[in-house]
Design a binder for these strands. Structure first.
Lengths: 191, 191
DNA sequence: GCTTGATTACACCGATCTGTGTAGATAGAT
DNA sequence: ATCTATCTACACAGATCGGTGTAATCAAGC
């Protein structure tokens, strides 16, 4: 019997630590030795679960790629909830930007797998937003969905550099203006 | 007499190459050996001009921190010109996001100097935007300026991952909507 | 001609990187 | 009790990292 009860399978333990370190310090800044040491395992064990660091990075991004939970609320509520949670994310101390955008920035030309996952994630989010605004009956869902996505990523980038606690709220206000301009109001959306 | 006429001072030659490699491949992905080899000089010469890699990175960012040229056009024209040039930047093949946001992402906790420069840059751009929208007489220049900055950084992040050729135009449309909502129209701004 | 400053080549440092090879310890299942 | 799978420690490989020390070379100015 080991001193510390593992409870979780080894793969999950590794990914927990890898996620924390990759996101907090950056992918290139964290070596596999550091991850293994932090988990408390040998480097050999890590390489028994993942074929390479790139493979571990891909698994890290895949695990961050969680679908947005289905909701019974109105599409407008769901959109506004997204912006509210965004602003809350800024408030949490460990916030370090979007892990997918960061990954693309860090890996550059190499590691095509990670690029693909990041691309798929962003397209998934755009598709989610397009679905919501389509249900609101706006004339140009594609444009509005992209614009709302732009607001989210822009607020994230601004907060990453400037740490402006108001940036989330301002992005939310801008979203409201764009929605209203597309003919969406709280009253209209409730109908 | 050397085979290749230097023409530019050594420091500029180094920075030219460092800029290209740092921006294109990433700061952490490029070593000083690579830069020196690309310039065609010895590593010793590079370190005679810059105290460290961090110092070179700082100089690279400083050189990217160019003031927006003064213009006699109307503030609204200048703002819209900014969005137009943004969309053009996406079209250029070598576009790899905002070098300042990228730097903050890549360096993480260390290299405080680079963080400061990135922060100063973003604040300078926000201040420029605030100055322009203030001249337009909007009720809340701080909010609108931040929102326009969010649109710019958001379009950059979206384009970095998704390579959507329409994202620049959609950000520009969103900017027009936000300006109009603040009471700014082409006719009103010209007055 | 001589001095001065810049640049050169090149070896070298210690640290870190990803990744592997190996042999033994451990624990659970049958 | 034995088989099997996992994890361990640890050494090591080959490359790259940022950075330094040194002696020779080269060109320009006086």
């Amino acid at each position: 019997m080991s001193l510390v009860a593992p409870k979780q399978p080894m793969k999950e333990r590794i990914l927990d630590t890898a996620d924390r370190l990759f996101y907090q310090r950056g992918i290139r800044a964290v070596g596999v030795d550091t991850i293994a040491a932090e988990v408390g395992i040998s480097k050999r064990t890590l390489y028994n679960h993942f074929p390479s660091k790139d493979g571990l990075v891909a698994a890290y991004l895949m695990r961050r790629f969680v679908p947005i939970p289905h909701s019974e609320k109105s599409p407008l509520d769901q959109i506004m909830r997204t912006f509210e949670r965004l602003a809350q994310g800024f408030a949490s101390k460990g916030f370090r930007g979007c892990p997918f955008v960061n990954a693309v920035t860090e890996i550059g030309e190499s590691d095509t797998e990670a690029r693909k996952i990041a691309l798929a994630f962003k397209e998934d989010r755009i598709a989610w937003m397009r679905d919501k605004v389509t249900k609101l009956g706006v004339p140009d869902p594609e444009t509005l969905a992209t614009q709302l996505a732009i607001l989210i990523d822009g607020a994230i980038a601004q907060d990453l550099v400037r740490r402006d606690p108001e940036v989330g709220r301002k992005a939310q206000q801008a979203a409201r203006v764009l929605l209203a301009h597309a003919g969406v109001t709280a009253a209209a959306a409730a109908s």
